[in-house]
Nucleic acid binder design. Structure first.
Lengths: 220, 220
DNA sequence: GCCTATTTTTAGATAAGCCTAAAAATAGTT
DNA sequence: AACTATTTTTAGGCTTATCTAAAAATAGGC
């Protein structure tokens, strides 16, 4: 139905319109996320606009139409289901799944996605804790709290990450921090806002403020 | 490494050079299998030749080089592993797997294929009984016999198909004939060379000569 | 051995998606 | 309100993979 490239543009516009608050998404922002040039983006915006997938006013940025949003969410759904497959079944690390899912998300077959969903037992979140859109396009967003906001002595469960970079995820691997771990905030250092955590009742570990800002937790 | 299109051309040339006997594969044959025009094929043959993937002499047809053969076999391996995944894990019918595997085979990740292979428990054949090339490029070809060559009262196991069309596979579904079934040749009608089979010691069924020619069996 | 039918290749175009360089529009500062 | 810096768009080109139509090479029948 839609090309590899069109799906990527729509997905990118969707992600950008989620972040921050913006009324509309800018050409440069799209170019940066897609690692391409602004001129190429403008070209594609015209095409997507002709196909009624976005509303686009020259120099004013873009927004997804309902039609475009459906395509974008469909792509996100496929991406995250494949990530679950790679992580749960093929034993990829959570730092490795994204790259391969970027390719798999463009496979065209509704039947495939439905069967994959069933095979994975209808997962609700991907390996990074991000929600998987349902077939009907709805997304159940459980709101997670940045670890950094937790008070001393509270007990929480690691349930997501804000930052998705490979280097951050690998850093968490080294610290043996992964989704589902029970975390008790043992101490908060005033000086640099670093935190001492007790993970799964094991040894205490120290995480920087930078790391604590990017870990998302939920109540026990 | 190689584009979607290049992989498809190489795979097609590989399949054609397996079929029949031919010293070299013709432009028209490639065009027909790929559902494209001879002129387009000529263009691509030049490019593949420049990349040393095929040996190509104008008007004389093509052959894969060792390099090209490796790429082709790699693609066949990926295709067949994905077919096993779709059939065994996602419960696709054997008449449905090919189409989706045509897309999945082009996903680029050696790691993915190794992990998929392990997850599937290192299968040796795909859902149609075709051998899955090993990682090193070798193919273990167990030779199968067309059912039509079997004598009355012999007992065999259905282990492959010669014809891969969706309509043939669906016809076999209707007859409840699938790989692994034990078949006893109960009778062979001289008149039209049709055969009466006893399948898994159940009821007797009649298969036409056309069908019997396209079913491959091995010894019990 | 020639002549015709078929196959294959060449020539010239098209569409998608990308690029650079230049022009136009917008936004921020005074 | 004007000037400058930034953003965005336009213009013109490139590559990949495709096409049609015409030309060239090959193969088969006599």
């Amino acid at each position: 139905m839609y090309s590899f490239t069109e799906e990527n543009y729509l997905k990118t516009i969707y992600h950008l319109s989620q972040q921050k608050h913006p009324e509309s998404v800018t050409t440069n922002a799209i170019a940066e996320l897609l690692q391409t040039k602004a001129a190429s983006v403008t070209d594609m915006l015209k095409k997507l606009s002709d196909k009624k997938l976005i509303s686009y006013v020259k120099y004013q940025g873009v927004n997804l139409t309902e039609k475009g949003r459906k395509v974008a969410i469909g792509t996100v759904r496929k991406h995250r289901l494949w990530e679950v497959f790679l992580f749960d079944k093929l034993k990829f690390g959570w730092d490795e799944v994204h790259e391969v899912a970027e390719q798999l998300e463009h496979i065209q077959s509704d039947n495939l996605i439905e069967k994959l969903d069933a095979f994975l037992n209808y997962p609700t979140v991907d390996p990074h804790g991000d929600p998987i859109p349902r077939k009907d396009g709805t997304i159940k967003n459980q709101k997670l709290t940045p670890l950094v906001e937790c008070k001393k002595n509270t007990q929480v469960v690691m349930s997501g990450v804000k930052e998705h970079s490979v280097s951050f995820l690998q850093h968490l691997n080294k610290m043996e921090l992964s989704l589902g771990k029970k975390i008790k905030i043992h101490e908060v250092h005033e000086f640099d806002r670093s935190m001492v955590l007790m993970v799964d009742k094991g040894t205490k570990i120290l995480v920087s403020n930078e790391v604590a800002k990017n870990i998302l937790v939920s109540e026990v």
